[in-house]
Computed example of a mutant assay.
Amino acid sequence: MRSLFTIGLISAWYSSNIGVLLLNKFLLSNYGFKYPIFLTLCHMLACSLLSYIAIEWLKIAPLQRVRSRLQLLKISALGIIFCLSVVGGNISLRYLPVSFNQAVGATTPFFTAVFAVVMTAKREGWVTYVTLIPVVAGVIIASGGEPLFHLFGFIMCIGATAARALKSVLQGILLSSEGEKLNSMNLLMYMAPIAVLVLFPAAIYMEEGVIGITVALARDDWKFLLYLLFNSALAYFVNLANFLVTKHTSPLTLQVKLLGTGKCKRGGGRGYIDHDIQNPVSVTGMLGYSLTVAGVVLYTEAKKRNM
């Protein structure tokens, strides 16, 4: 029964992710709306509001109070780290091709494994760690064979990747720690407003004129506002499902599942900046990408055998 529940969670998570991605592409194609940071800001506003309604009005989950300053600090760190992953990922896409950005993102399980050991002392079997070697080696090879390599973009991409991994581990702690445990809905309700406070100035600075453009699009076509609201509401279910999957599996397994679906558009629509989707890929780069994918497959098989 527990396995069926977990499969259902993952299926719901995949489905809602696909829905958000399709809506993101629709907004880009039909309205030219290429503002991923502002879109993520809308997502977090929806998460704040819908979580509050679900807890306070609908009583779907009991309200849990923040118990200590340390717990509040961890929740704040989670929100800030999430924002750093979004902003860093978008900055990196200005300098790096999408294909290379995805290859670097494939090292997320490696960083997750490192942070899990450092922060929780939780260790996987040695075979699991061995399977992560080709994942990292593939990125190193791809870096050497990338004709459009940019050092600053690479640093930002690695930083965003590490931030995603740290977020997964930290949310796992907040969802399962006996002394500081929060259910998924409460954690999202507390984390989302903090993310809004960080994302708002980032959107204003990095996506100049986005508020005026959004208002103008809404005035010209009221359906745009409807699509934006539905997109934000669906993103709430994506984030909620993300927390639930983390709780019922593990942060490391979560990140490899993400890679397995080819989901490197994290952060609520980073795929908007796919202006260089037709960038040339060298033979060395293809070798690196293939090695990375092989590592993900090996990891999945290792986890199956250890279950």
Rank of each mutant, 00 (worst) to 15 (best):
F5T: 09
F5P: 06
F5Q: 11
G8H: 11
W13D: 15
Y14L: 14
N17F: 11
I18Y: 14
K25G: 08
F26K: 10
L28A: 07
Y31F: 12
Y31E: 11
G32L: 11
K34Y: 09
Y35N: 08
Y35C: 01
P36Q: 01
I37K: 06
I37N: 06
F38L: 09
F38G: 05
F38M: 07
L39C: 03
L41T: 05
C42A: 08
S48Y: 04
L49Y: 12
I55G: 09
E56T: 10
K59Y: 06
I60E: 15
L63H: 03
Q64F: 14
Q64N: 07
V66G: 06
V66P: 13
R67D: 01
R69I: 10
R69D: 02
L70Y: 08
L72M: 08
L73E: 03
S76Y: 02
A77S: 10
L78K: 04
F82E: 11
V86R: 15
V87H: 13
G88N: 08
G88Q: 10
G88F: 11
G89T: 06
L93Y: 04
L93Q: 01
Y95R: 02
Y95L: 05
V98W: 00
F100Q: 01
F100K: 01
V104H: 00
G105S: 12
G105K: 08
A106M: 15
T107A: 15
T107I: 12
F111P: 15
F111M: 10
T112F: 00
